[in-house]
Amino acid sequence: MCLAVPGKVIEIFEEAGLKMGRIDYAGTVNNACLEYVPEIQVGQYTVVHAGFALSVINEEEAVKSYEAWEELIETASQSGDGRYDDQLQTIRDLKENVEDDD
């Protein structure tokens, strides 16, 4: 019911007394109101709905999901034909990507 898209906070500023941020969505930048995520820092990701940031993306939890996927795919790839190898690499890259970003 509520379209909300993840983006990265690249700048925090004040406008008309409100905490606002510039949010980068893979190159397209738009402003969002950050009043509900007072703790957010530049470089962190958030989900934005109708111009408002809803929550700070929890990178630790995201990495945990990637690890769970890794396990799932690893179990599958033990059947041993190598068809999941690329997949595993992609997931490992994702994990590293999150960790590097900190």
């Binding site: 898209v5 990265k8 893979a26 990701y45 795919i73 997949q87 990507n97």
Partner: peptide, 17 residues
């Protein structure tokens, strides 16, 4: 896009299915 594209991955989707 980060936190979006990986959740559209076909191989993973098929695995969970």
């Amino acid at each position: 896009m980060k936190y979006l594209d990986e959740y559209r991955d076909p191989t993973l989707a098929v695995k969970i299915l």
